[in-house]
Amino acid sequence: MNTKRIPESELILNKDGSVYHLNLKPEHIADTIILVGDQDRVAKVANHFDSIIFETQKREFKTITGILKGKKLTVISTGIGPDNIDIVMNELDALVNINLDTRMIKPEHKKLSIVRIGTSGSLQKDIPVDRFVLSKYGLGMDGTLHSYACEQILESDIENAFIKHTDWSNRKARPYIVKGSTVLATLLSSNDTFSGFTATANGFYGPQGRVLRLALQDAKLNSKIDNFSFNGLKITNLEMETSAIYGLAKLLGHEALSMNAIIANRANGTFSKDTHKTIEKLIKYTLDKLVTA
Protein backbone atom coordinates (compact mmCIF):
# COMPACT_ATOMS: atom_id res chain seq x y z
CA MET A 1 0.00 0.00 0.00
CA ASN A 2 1.18 3.52 -0.81
CA THR A 3 1.97 5.27 2.48
CA LYS A 4 2.91 8.58 0.90
CA ARG A 5 0.72 11.66 1.00
CA ILE A 6 -0.99 12.24 -2.37
CA PRO A 7 -0.09 15.74 -3.64
CA GLU A 8 -2.69 18.43 -4.38
CA SER A 9 -1.79 18.27 -8.09
CA GLU A 10 -2.72 14.56 -8.28
CA LEU A 11 -5.87 14.49 -6.14
CA ILE A 12 -7.60 17.81 -6.81
CA LEU A 13 -10.26 18.89 -4.32
CA ASN A 14 -12.73 21.76 -4.43
CA LYS A 15 -12.69 24.43 -1.72
CA ASP A 16 -15.38 22.58 0.22
CA GLY A 17 -13.28 19.39 0.26
CA SER A 18 -15.26 17.55 -2.42
CA VAL A 19 -13.55 15.68 -5.26
CA TYR A 20 -12.93 17.99 -8.18
CA HIS A 21 -15.13 16.77 -11.05
CA LEU A 22 -17.92 14.90 -9.29
CA ASN A 23 -18.34 17.58 -6.59
CA LEU A 24 -18.94 14.84 -4.00
CA LYS A 25 -17.84 14.08 -0.45
CA PRO A 26 -17.70 10.55 1.02
CA GLU A 27 -20.98 10.96 2.91
CA HIS A 28 -22.81 11.81 -0.33
CA ILE A 29 -22.64 8.36 -1.94
CA ALA A 30 -23.98 4.86 -1.31
CA ASP A 31 -22.05 1.60 -1.56
CA THR A 32 -24.17 0.71 -4.61
CA ILE A 33 -23.63 3.08 -7.54
CA ILE A 34 -25.66 3.25 -10.75
CA LEU A 35 -23.91 4.88 -13.70
CA VAL A 36 -25.84 6.38 -16.62
CA GLY A 37 -24.49 8.34 -19.55
CA ASP A 38 -27.17 10.99 -19.98
CA GLN A 39 -27.56 13.48 -17.12
CA ASP A 40 -31.31 13.60 -17.80
CA ARG A 41 -31.49 9.87 -17.06
CA VAL A 42 -30.34 10.46 -13.47
CA ALA A 43 -33.75 11.87 -12.56
CA LYS A 44 -35.49 9.01 -14.39
CA VAL A 45 -33.71 6.54 -12.13
CA ALA A 46 -34.20 8.66 -9.01
CA ASN A 47 -37.93 8.97 -9.71
CA HIS A 48 -38.18 5.40 -8.47
CA PHE A 49 -36.57 6.25 -5.11
CA ASP A 50 -38.80 6.50 -2.05
CA SER A 51 -36.80 9.49 -0.80
CA ILE A 52 -33.91 11.72 -1.89
CA ILE A 53 -30.99 12.32 0.47
CA PHE A 54 -28.62 14.40 -1.65
CA GLU A 55 -28.17 15.79 -5.15
CA THR A 56 -25.61 17.88 -6.97
CA GLN A 57 -24.27 18.57 -10.45
CA LYS A 58 -21.00 19.83 -11.92
CA ARG A 59 -20.60 19.85 -15.70
CA GLU A 60 -22.07 16.61 -17.08
CA PHE A 61 -21.67 14.82 -13.75
CA LYS A 62 -25.06 14.84 -12.03
CA THR A 63 -25.58 12.82 -8.83
CA ILE A 64 -28.66 11.87 -6.82
CA THR A 65 -28.52 9.65 -3.73
CA GLY A 66 -31.69 8.24 -2.23
CA ILE A 67 -33.45 5.33 -0.59
CA LEU A 68 -35.46 2.62 -2.35
CA LYS A 69 -37.16 -0.05 -0.24
CA GLY A 70 -34.70 0.58 2.57
CA LYS A 71 -31.59 0.39 0.36
CA LYS A 72 -29.35 3.42 -0.18
CA LEU A 73 -28.49 3.97 -3.87
CA THR A 74 -26.54 6.59 -5.79
CA VAL A 75 -27.04 7.36 -9.48
CA ILE A 76 -24.41 9.37 -11.37
CA SER A 77 -24.22 10.55 -14.98
CA THR A 78 -20.85 9.99 -16.63
CA GLY A 79 -21.34 11.70 -19.96
CA ILE A 80 -20.02 9.92 -23.04
CA GLY A 81 -16.82 7.97 -23.48
CA PRO A 82 -14.02 6.13 -21.69
CA ASP A 83 -12.17 9.37 -20.86
CA ASN A 84 -15.07 10.43 -18.64
CA ILE A 85 -15.18 6.94 -17.11
CA ASP A 86 -11.54 7.38 -16.09
CA ILE A 87 -12.56 10.47 -14.11
CA VAL A 88 -15.66 8.95 -12.54
CA MET A 89 -14.11 5.65 -11.47
CA ASN A 90 -10.99 7.20 -9.97
CA GLU A 91 -12.93 9.86 -8.06
CA LEU A 92 -15.50 7.36 -6.76
CA ASP A 93 -12.69 5.18 -5.48
CA ALA A 94 -10.98 8.18 -3.89
CA LEU A 95 -14.18 8.93 -1.96
CA VAL A 96 -14.13 5.55 -0.22
CA ASN A 97 -10.47 4.51 -0.18
CA ILE A 98 -8.53 7.75 0.36
CA ASN A 99 -8.74 9.95 3.44
CA LEU A 100 -9.41 13.29 1.78
CA ASP A 101 -8.20 15.23 4.84
CA THR A 102 -4.82 13.53 5.20
CA ARG A 103 -4.51 12.58 1.49
CA MET A 104 -3.43 9.09 2.57
CA ILE A 105 -4.78 5.75 1.31
CA LYS A 106 -6.96 4.17 3.96
CA PRO A 107 -5.59 0.96 5.54
CA GLU A 108 -8.84 -0.94 4.95
CA HIS A 109 -10.17 -1.22 1.40
CA LYS A 110 -13.86 -0.53 0.74
CA LYS A 111 -15.58 -2.22 -2.21
CA LEU A 112 -18.31 -0.55 -4.25
CA SER A 113 -20.92 -2.26 -6.41
CA ILE A 114 -21.18 -0.36 -9.69
CA VAL A 115 -23.86 -1.04 -12.31
CA ARG A 116 -24.07 0.78 -15.62
CA ILE A 117 -27.52 1.28 -17.14
CA GLY A 118 -26.89 2.30 -20.72
CA THR A 119 -28.21 2.26 -24.26
CA SER A 120 -26.51 0.38 -27.04
CA GLY A 121 -26.79 -1.08 -30.52
CA SER A 122 -26.90 -4.82 -31.06
CA LEU A 123 -24.45 -6.42 -33.50
CA GLN A 124 -26.25 -9.76 -33.73
CA LYS A 125 -29.47 -10.41 -35.67
CA ASP A 126 -30.79 -12.65 -32.90
CA ILE A 127 -30.62 -9.85 -30.27
CA PRO A 128 -33.56 -7.63 -31.24
CA VAL A 129 -34.28 -4.06 -30.24
CA ASP A 130 -36.05 -3.44 -26.93
CA ARG A 131 -34.19 -6.29 -25.21
CA PHE A 132 -31.43 -6.25 -22.55
CA VAL A 133 -27.77 -7.25 -22.81
CA LEU A 134 -25.74 -8.13 -19.72
CA SER A 135 -22.06 -7.64 -20.54
CA LYS A 136 -20.12 -10.72 -19.43
CA TYR A 137 -16.91 -9.19 -20.77
CA GLY A 138 -15.85 -5.70 -21.79
CA LEU A 139 -13.76 -5.57 -24.98
CA GLY A 140 -11.91 -2.26 -25.07
CA MET A 141 -10.85 -0.76 -28.38
CA ASP A 142 -10.25 2.60 -26.67
CA GLY A 143 -6.80 2.12 -25.13
CA THR A 144 -7.73 3.72 -21.79
CA LEU A 145 -6.60 0.86 -19.59
CA HIS A 146 -3.11 0.76 -21.10
CA SER A 147 -2.23 3.88 -19.12
CA TYR A 148 -2.24 1.65 -16.02
CA ALA A 149 -0.33 -1.48 -14.95
CA CYS A 150 -3.14 -3.82 -15.92
CA GLU A 151 -1.73 -7.04 -17.36
CA GLN A 152 -2.81 -9.11 -14.35
CA ILE A 153 -6.54 -8.57 -14.98
CA LEU A 154 -6.64 -9.06 -18.75
CA GLU A 155 -7.97 -12.03 -20.72
CA SER A 156 -4.95 -12.35 -23.01
CA ASP A 157 -6.07 -15.53 -24.79
CA ILE A 158 -9.30 -13.88 -25.92
CA GLU A 159 -7.43 -10.69 -26.86
CA ASN A 160 -5.01 -12.61 -29.07
CA ALA A 161 -7.86 -14.47 -30.76
CA PHE A 162 -9.68 -11.19 -31.45
CA ILE A 163 -6.56 -9.49 -32.81
CA LYS A 164 -5.92 -12.40 -35.16
CA HIS A 165 -9.56 -12.65 -36.26
CA THR A 166 -9.83 -8.94 -37.10
CA ASP A 167 -6.28 -8.50 -38.45
CA TRP A 168 -6.09 -5.59 -36.00
CA SER A 169 -3.92 -2.68 -37.14
CA ASN A 170 -0.79 -2.27 -35.02
CA ARG A 171 -1.21 1.50 -35.34
CA LYS A 172 -4.26 1.29 -33.08
CA ALA A 173 -4.27 0.64 -29.34
CA ARG A 174 -4.15 -3.06 -28.49
CA PRO A 175 -7.65 -4.35 -27.68
CA TYR A 176 -8.07 -5.35 -24.03
CA ILE A 177 -10.65 -7.66 -22.48
CA VAL A 178 -11.81 -7.67 -18.85
CA LYS A 179 -14.44 -9.89 -17.27
CA GLY A 180 -17.34 -8.23 -15.48
CA SER A 181 -18.38 -9.01 -11.92
CA THR A 182 -19.63 -12.57 -11.52
CA VAL A 183 -21.35 -11.53 -8.28
CA LEU A 184 -23.42 -8.86 -10.03
CA ALA A 185 -23.96 -11.05 -13.09
CA THR A 186 -25.55 -13.71 -10.89
CA LEU A 187 -27.77 -11.08 -9.31
CA LEU A 188 -28.84 -9.33 -12.52
CA SER A 189 -29.10 -12.14 -15.07
CA SER A 190 -32.39 -13.79 -16.00
CA ASN A 191 -34.27 -15.14 -19.00
CA ASP A 192 -34.77 -11.49 -20.00
CA THR A 193 -31.05 -10.90 -20.60
CA PHE A 194 -28.62 -11.83 -23.37
CA SER A 195 -24.92 -12.06 -22.50
CA GLY A 196 -21.63 -11.84 -24.37
CA PHE A 197 -18.83 -9.42 -25.13
CA THR A 198 -19.64 -5.70 -25.13
CA ALA A 199 -17.21 -3.79 -27.33
CA THR A 200 -16.23 -0.28 -26.28
CA ALA A 201 -15.12 2.25 -28.89
CA ASN A 202 -13.45 5.60 -28.28
CA GLY A 203 -15.73 7.47 -30.67
CA PHE A 204 -19.19 7.36 -32.23
CA TYR A 205 -18.51 7.69 -35.94
CA GLY A 206 -15.32 6.20 -37.42
CA PRO A 207 -14.43 4.12 -34.35
CA GLN A 208 -17.85 2.44 -34.62
CA GLY A 209 -17.68 2.02 -38.40
CA ARG A 210 -19.95 4.92 -39.36
CA VAL A 211 -19.10 6.74 -42.56
CA LEU A 212 -20.04 10.34 -43.30
CA ARG A 213 -17.26 12.08 -45.25
CA LEU A 214 -14.19 10.21 -43.98
CA ALA A 215 -12.93 6.85 -45.17
CA LEU A 216 -12.33 4.15 -42.56
CA GLN A 217 -8.97 2.54 -41.80
CA ASP A 218 -10.69 -0.87 -42.08
CA ALA A 219 -14.07 -0.76 -43.79
CA LYS A 220 -14.65 -4.45 -42.98
CA LEU A 221 -13.93 -4.19 -39.24
CA ASN A 222 -17.57 -4.18 -38.13
CA SER A 223 -18.32 -7.40 -40.01
CA LYS A 224 -15.20 -8.99 -38.47
CA ILE A 225 -16.37 -7.91 -35.02
CA ASP A 226 -19.86 -9.30 -35.70
CA ASN A 227 -18.39 -12.69 -36.64
CA PHE A 228 -16.00 -13.06 -33.71
CA SER A 229 -16.73 -15.87 -31.26
CA PHE A 230 -14.81 -17.32 -28.32
CA ASN A 231 -16.05 -20.41 -26.46
CA GLY A 232 -19.53 -19.78 -27.83
CA LEU A 233 -19.70 -16.11 -26.77
CA LYS A 234 -20.13 -13.42 -29.42
CA ILE A 235 -19.74 -9.66 -29.40
CA THR A 236 -23.29 -8.65 -28.63
CA ASN A 237 -23.17 -4.87 -28.78
CA LEU A 238 -21.04 -1.80 -29.31
CA GLU A 239 -20.93 1.30 -27.07
CA MET A 240 -18.44 3.68 -25.41
CA GLU A 241 -18.06 2.99 -21.67
CA THR A 242 -18.17 -0.64 -20.49
CA SER A 243 -14.59 -1.84 -20.93
CA ALA A 244 -13.16 1.16 -19.07
CA ILE A 245 -15.63 0.61 -16.21
CA TYR A 246 -14.69 -3.08 -15.99
CA GLY A 247 -10.96 -2.51 -16.17
CA LEU A 248 -10.77 0.30 -13.64
CA ALA A 249 -13.22 -1.41 -11.28
CA LYS A 250 -11.15 -4.59 -11.25
CA LEU A 251 -7.87 -2.71 -10.77
CA LEU A 252 -9.39 -0.68 -7.92
CA GLY A 253 -11.07 -3.67 -6.29
CA HIS A 254 -14.75 -2.98 -7.01
CA GLU A 255 -17.58 -5.04 -8.50
CA ALA A 256 -18.90 -3.72 -11.83
CA LEU A 257 -21.43 -4.84 -14.41
CA SER A 258 -22.98 -3.23 -17.47
CA MET A 259 -26.66 -3.53 -18.38
CA ASN A 260 -27.58 -2.35 -21.87
CA ALA A 261 -30.96 -1.45 -23.35
CA ILE A 262 -30.80 -2.38 -27.02
CA ILE A 263 -32.34 0.47 -28.97
CA ALA A 264 -30.80 -0.30 -32.38
CA ASN A 265 -29.82 -3.40 -34.30
CA ARG A 266 -26.89 -2.69 -36.61
CA ALA A 267 -27.13 -6.14 -38.20
CA ASN A 268 -30.63 -5.68 -39.61
CA GLY A 269 -30.91 -1.88 -39.57
CA THR A 270 -33.80 -1.61 -37.10
CA PHE A 271 -34.36 0.99 -34.38
CA SER A 272 -36.66 0.94 -31.36
CA LYS A 273 -40.05 2.56 -31.85
CA ASP A 274 -40.09 3.69 -28.21
CA THR A 275 -36.62 4.10 -26.72
CA HIS A 276 -37.94 5.79 -23.57
CA LYS A 277 -40.12 2.79 -22.76
CA THR A 278 -37.24 0.36 -23.28
CA ILE A 279 -34.88 2.38 -21.08
CA GLU A 280 -37.55 2.71 -18.39
CA LYS A 281 -38.06 -1.07 -18.41
CA LEU A 282 -34.31 -1.63 -17.94
CA ILE A 283 -34.16 0.92 -15.10
CA LYS A 284 -37.02 -0.81 -13.27
CA TYR A 285 -35.59 -4.28 -13.94
CA THR A 286 -32.16 -3.31 -12.58
CA LEU A 287 -33.49 -1.50 -9.52
CA ASP A 288 -35.78 -4.40 -8.62
CA LYS A 289 -32.82 -6.78 -8.75
CA LEU A 290 -30.56 -4.51 -6.70
CA VAL A 291 -33.03 -3.88 -3.85
CA THR A 292 -33.92 -7.56 -3.48
CA ALA A 293 -30.27 -8.58 -3.06
Results as ranks from 00 to 15, higher is better:
Glu108Ala: 12
Lys220His: 14
Ser135Arg: 02
Leu187Lys: 09
Gly203Leu: 08
Asp167Gly: 11
Thr119Asn: 07
Pro128Cys: 10
Asp167Tyr: 02
Ala199Asn: 01
Leu212His: 11
Asp226Asn: 15
Ser195Gln: 13
Ile127Asn: 00
Lys179Ile: 07
Ser122His: 07
Ala199Leu: 15
Gln217His: 11
Leu212Tyr: 08
Gly121Gln: 04
Gly232Arg: 14
Ile127Phe: 03
Met141Val: 09
Gly180Thr: 06
Thr186Pro: 01
Ser135Glu: 06
Gln208Asn: 10
Pro175Thr: 04
Ser147Leu: 15
Ser120Leu: 06
Gln152Pro: 03
Ile158Glu: 01
Asn99Asp: 15
Leu184Glu: 01
Leu145Ile: 15
Leu187Arg: 11
Tyr137Val: 03
Lys125Gln: 13
Leu216Cys: 07
Gly209Glu: 00
Leu139Pro: 00
Ser195Asp: 15
Gln208Glu: 14
Phe204Leu: 13
Gln217Val: 05
Gln208Phe: 05
Asp130Asn: 13
Ser147Arg: 14
Ser195Leu: 06
Thr193Ala: 13
Asp142Thr: 05
Gly143Val: 07
Val133Gly: 05
Thr102Ile: 11
Asn231Pro: 02
Thr198His: 09
Arg103Lys: 14
Ser113Ile: 00
Phe230Met: 11
Thr193Asn: 12
Phe132Lys: 06
Asp130Gly: 03
Thr144Gln: 10
Val115Arg: 02
Arg131Tyr: 11
Thr166Ser: 12
Leu212Asp: 12
Asn160Gln: 13
Leu154Asp: 00
Phe197Trp: 03
Trp168Gln: 06
Tyr205Met: 07
Tyr148Cys: 11
Ser122Ile: 04
Gly140Trp: 00
Asp130Val: 09
Val129Cys: 14
Phe230His: 13
Asp192Phe: 05
Leu188Cys: 08
Thr236Arg: 00
Ile163Arg: 01
Gly140Arg: 00
Gly118Asp: 07
Val211Glu: 04
Gln208Trp: 12
Arg103Cys: 09
Leu221Gln: 08
Met104Gln: 09
Asp218Lys: 00
Thr198Phe: 09
Asp157Gly: 05
His165Gly: 02
Cys150Gln: 05
Leu184Lys: 00
Phe197Glu: 01
Asn231Met: 12
Thr186Gln: 14
Thr182Met: 12
Thr182Arg: 08
Asn170Arg: 12
Gly138Lys: 04
Lys164Pro: 00
Ala185Phe: 06
Leu187Met: 13
Met104Pro: 00
Gly232Pro: 07
Leu145Phe: 06
Glu108Phe: 12
Glu159Tyr: 05
Ile235Gly: 01
Thr119Gly: 13
Ser169Gly: 05
Arg213Gly: 00
Lys164Thr: 13
Gln208Ile: 08
Gln217Arg: 06
Thr102Gln: 12
Asn191Ser: 14
Pro207Phe: 09
Lys234Trp: 10
Lys136Arg: 11
Arg103Gly: 02
Asn170Asp: 14
Asn99Gly: 08
Met141Gln: 09
Ile117Ala: 04
Leu221Asp: 01
Thr119Ala: 10
His146Val: 03
Asn191Met: 06
Thr144Lys: 06
Ala215Leu: 08
His165Cys: 06
Leu112Cys: 11
Ile235Val: 15
Ile105Gln: 03
Ala219Lys: 04
Lys220Thr: 14
Ala201Pro: 04
Gln124Ser: 04
Arg171Asn: 14
Lys220Gly: 05
Gly121Glu: 03
Ala199Asp: 03
Asp101Cys: 04
Ala173Thr: 02
